[in-house]
Design a binder for these strands. Structure first.
Lengths: 266, 266
DNA sequence: CGTTATTGTCCGATATTCCAGACAATAGGC
DNA sequence: GCCTATTGTCTGGAATATCGGACAATAACG
């Protein structure tokens, strides 16, 4: 489990734990599933209850319902639960319901095979960046962050592209202030970041070197939807010492493929 | 979309629509997601309400909550919703949380590539058979049923293996009587089916020719978990006129790979 | 342009869900 | 063996989520 970007797990989830407040079952379910996604490992009911700030009795009730629906599954010797088969099926349905997504996955496969590099499909989830799918390089060099883990947008090359439609003001309102702080303590000046976003928009691609961690060179190219908006990107994660010649070759390929997947202007 | 096995979509979902009864939000959510999976296409809120037998106002409320959590997503011009990004992430987490599943997927990939045939990973979901993942043959011959669609167990080769741990009586209680009726109207005698199950258990594989539809020859091999139980199968879907020599060659490969993936007795 | 169906939103009331807390049963820790 | 922490289950009561139905706004039809 790549500990670089992934490592930081906060214990609190997001909710305002205003005491004495009663919450809907649906909201509990949503919070629970998101907590499980963050944890990225089977959890015990008691710990889930603590993590989402719900009464134990309620948590048991909900977990049992979800177990019955196979949205959760018992795993390991005893007491641990994690996502279940139904989730797999729902997720599969999501990613195959349109021909476009299927084409993207095929391209991801091919790109990974042909280049032997780590390739990712990225997008936004709320005001965070997430990896939607990836093909890891077969070599010993394996640095991709896990699918589904939320990462601050300014840490990533793709993030600079995905904000291309926003004004400086909108970006300012959108990004939580703390997200400009990198894992090693450095802080990206917002003004610089706005410049990066503008540059990415102008160039039609974005690169970052040794940003979120010291070892990677990332390059991202936009996939545009029918309206020309960018809501997904294709992205290489390379060793930072990859020679320039190789990098520019890969960049060209990446941009070509991403353009081929875009729906507008074709 | 392969219409053979998939085509039959009932409108009712499963619930007993005892009138005047009030239902929990959680249960509504579960029913809703299952309905969407059955439909296998974006739906409008009104139709969802009808399909799951919920009041419109309630359905709107729930759908909006799920939209906000990105468990559902607006799709198309207006009013249609389908599974959302969060589902994809949950499902991805499910299928990658253990090394065993990852190994299975790799084998599926390799088997599909090497043979060029349609390969499936199958399992049970309640008392139905479902395809969990598949690699479609690249040729014009593409007959696999869709991932996640529930199919009566007696229609399938894998089903015969997956019931291997049950007694005749247990099987009888487990399979809904209507499930012995094939799509073309023929009916499988339960006694014959019990025999098939026993044979599959004894042989360690199962084959069906032109059963669920006239064009396919299916062969399935068991993947055993740590206790020796069969809860997944690997399975080829071949054109029914595949020569015997080729078939037996594939069968050997399939059984080898499946045994390699089994956790017990290795 | 009426007539009929739909869609999305809002409201008040009541049937119910969610919560707090108690309970027995294990499982350590020392 | 005593003390503490945990797990899974149950219960009664009160806060509230679900429901039926009304509403305006479109849309579909002839």
């Amino acid at each position: 489990m790549s500990d670089g970007v992934t490592g930081l797990i906060e214990t609190e989830v997001r909710a305002e734990p205003r005491n004495g407040e009663r919450r809907r079952g649906i909201d509990r379910v949503i919070t629970l599933l998101e907590a499980l996604l963050r944890q990225r490992a089977p959890m015990r009911v008691g710990d889930i209850a603590k993590m989402i700030g719900a009464p134990r009795s309620t948590t048991y009730e909900i977990v049992n319902s979800l177990l019955e629906a196979e949205m959760l599954e018992n795993v390991g010797t005893e007491g641990y639960v994690y996502f279940g088969k139904a989730m797999h099926l729902f997720g599969w349905a999501y990613s195959h319901h349109n021909a476009h997504y299927r084409r993207i996955i095929e391209t991801l496969d091919r790109l990974g095979e042909e280049t032997g590099e780590t390739v990712q499909l990225c997008g936004l989830r709320g005001n965070k960046y997430v990896v939607l799918d990836c093909r890891d390089s077969p070599g010993p060099f394996r640095i991709s962050s896990d699918v589904g883990v939320e990462v601050p947008i300014p840490w990533t090359a793709s993030g600079r592209l995905l904000l291309g439609h926003m004004s400086k003001q909108e970006i300012q309102d959108f990004i939580p202030p703390g997200d400009y702080k990198l894992p090693d303590g450095r802080v990206i000046a917002p003004a610089e970041f706005f410049g990066d976003v503008a540059l990415a928009r102008q160039q039609g691609f974005s690169e970052t070197a040794a940003l979120a961690d010291r070892f990677t060179w990332c390059m991202a190219a936009p996939i545009r939807d029918g309206n020309g908006a960018i809501n997904k990107t294709l992205c290489f994660v390379l060793p930072v010492d990859t020679p320039e010649a190789r990098r520019s070759e890969l960049l060209v390929q990446l941009c070509e493929r991403a353009r081929g997947l875009s729906l507008a202007g074709s």
